[in-house]
């Protein structure tokens, strides 16, 4: 199983560990993630306006490279997944947009939405299968009560992202069960943590992330997992009540017994 892989800016820096846990886990599961060459930052936020071209070019280049490698494009970071998948949808459905975009592409790189964009969770769910994953768990996280934090970017807009039911998602809960732990459902798991306001209006980020953590604590969660570095930072640093927040790949690596390998640099 070979995929083109788009790590994104933060997975190379502050969230390097998200990347390392994922790569070690993928290896243990027989998934080959081949990094897109010379990828550029996706911008972290999809601009919804009809007239933005430049902010979407980095995504298109990565998508075209994956197409040329003959692979689906896998992302780990929720924000990258959101931006690249939505740009891909534009490339597929908006002729005016893709015509303008292709003016910026190398002549032999013209792109029309051919690539399939996947989140790593989809690879686990739809390619490996959670039942299969469960069999490969050597260190089940039995007894741990884990709240899945989806946030916004994995799920919305549901018509484009197509990852799960945007109002009652299940993929992370199924993941938690597969690694032997117990998922905790709570109301704010798909509400915004206020991450984009971290710099600009910190009080909103504090208020939102606190609401998320309070909601999770009230339903008995002992820790949270997320796929997004900004959500993780916000929930761990900005929220008033304290709760441990992990990348889902960290618990995956732990369950698969490759956590130390990952931490020691493969």
């Amino acid at each position: 199983m070979k995929y083109s892989y788009y790590p994104g800016c933060t997975l190379r820096t502050k969230a390097e560990i998200l990347n390392r846990y994922a790569l070690a886990s993928a290896k243990a599961l027989g998934i080959e993630l081949e990094e897109v060459e010379n990828w550029q930052c996706c911008g972290g936020m999809y601009t919804a306006s009809t007239d933005e071209i430049a902010t979407k070019l980095a995504s298109v280049r990565a998508l075209a490279q994956a197409r040329d490698a003959g692979c689906d494009l896998v992302t780990l970071c929720s924000a990258c997944f959101n931006v690249i998948k939505r740009v891909n949808e534009d490339a597929r459905t908006n002729e005016n947009f893709i015509t303008k975009v292709n003016n910026y592409m190398a002549p032999d790189m013209e792109y029309h939405g051919e690539t399939n964009v996947l989140h790593f969770l989809e690879v686990l769910r739809d390619v490996i299968g959670f039942d299969e994953l469960k069999k490969k768990v050597v260190n089940p996280l039995t007894g741990r009560k884990i709240g899945a934090y989806y946030g916004c970017l994995l799920l919305r807009p549901g018509e484009v992202m197509q990852l799960d039911d945007p109002e009652n998602p299940k993929v992370l809960e199924e993941f938690i069960r597969a690694i032997g732990a117990t998922p905790v459902l709570y109301g704010q798991r798909n509400e915004c943590c206020g991450g984009y306001q971290t710099l600009n209006e910190k009080s909103i980020a504090v208020q939102r992330s606190s609401a998320v953590v309070e909601s999770a604590l009230s339903q008995g969660a002992e820790c949270l997992i997320t796929a997004c570095p900004l959500c993780r930072y916000n929930l761990a640093v900005n929220a008033a009540p304290q709760i441990p927040v992990y990348y889902f790949t960290e618990l995956l690596a732990e369950a698969l017994g490759v956590k130390e390998v990952a931490e020691n640099g493969n």
Partner: peptide, 27 residues
């Protein structure tokens, strides 16, 4: 709405790069 000069005061060592990138894209 956000200027590069304002940035250093807003940074903390944990802050993911994503926060900076998106803030500039947004503002």
């Amino acid at each position: 709405h956000l200027l590069p000069d304002e940035l250093p005061a807003l940074l903390d060592p944990e802050l993911p790069q994503q926060a900076i990138v998106t803030a500039f894209r947004k503002y």
